[in-house]
Simulated scan of single mutants.
Amino acid sequence: MKKILVSACLLGEKVRYDGNSQQQHHVMLNKWQQQGRIISICPEVAGGLTIPREPAEIQPDSRVITQKGINVGHQFLLGAEKALFLCQKYEIRYALLKESSPSCGSHTIYDGTFSNSKISGMGVTAALLEENGIQVFSEHQIDELNHLLN
Rank of each mutant, 00 (worst) to 15 (best):
Q135Y: 09
Q59L: 10
N30L: 03
T113R: 13
L10S: 07
H26Q: 01
K3S: 08
L84G: 03
A46H: 05
S21Q: 00
K98D: 05
N71R: 03
H25N: 04
T108C: 02
C87A: 06
N116E: 15
G79N: 13
C87H: 01
I134V: 15
L149I: 08
C87E: 03
V136A: 00
I4Y: 11
Q67T: 14
G69Y: 09
E44S: 10
S101K: 09
E139T: 11
Q34A: 13
G47H: 10
K68Y: 03
N20I: 04
K118W: 03
A83W: 01
L97Y: 05
Q23N: 14
E54F: 03
I109R: 04
Q135K: 12
E91V: 14
L86T: 09
M28R: 02
E44Q: 09
I58A: 00
E131A: 12
I134A: 05
L77T: 14
R16I: 14
T113S: 15
N132A: 12
Q88M: 03
V15C: 15
G73S: 15
E13H: 04
E81F: 12
D18M: 09
K3E: 09
P55E: 02
Q35T: 07
H147K: 15
G47E: 13
R63E: 10
G69T: 07
N146A: 15
V136G: 01
F76D: 04
A95P: 08
G79R: 14
C9Y: 11
S62P: 08
Q88L: 00
A127R: 07
I65G: 01
L10K: 06
Q23D: 07
I119T: 11
K98H: 05
K82C: 04
G112T: 06
H25T: 12
G36D: 09
S138C: 08
I70A: 14
H147A: 11
A8P: 10
L86N: 06
P60N: 11
Y94S: 11
G12Q: 08
P60W: 11
E130R: 12
Q34Y: 00
V64C: 15
I38Y: 07
Q35L: 13
D61L: 05
E139H: 08
S138V: 12
K2R: 15
V45C: 05
G123E: 09
L128D: 07
Q24D: 05
N20W: 05
S21F: 07
G112W: 04
D143N: 11
P52W: 10
S117A: 13
H147G: 04
E131P: 02
G69M: 12
T66W: 10
A80Y: 04
E57L: 05
G112H: 11
I142E: 08
R93P: 04
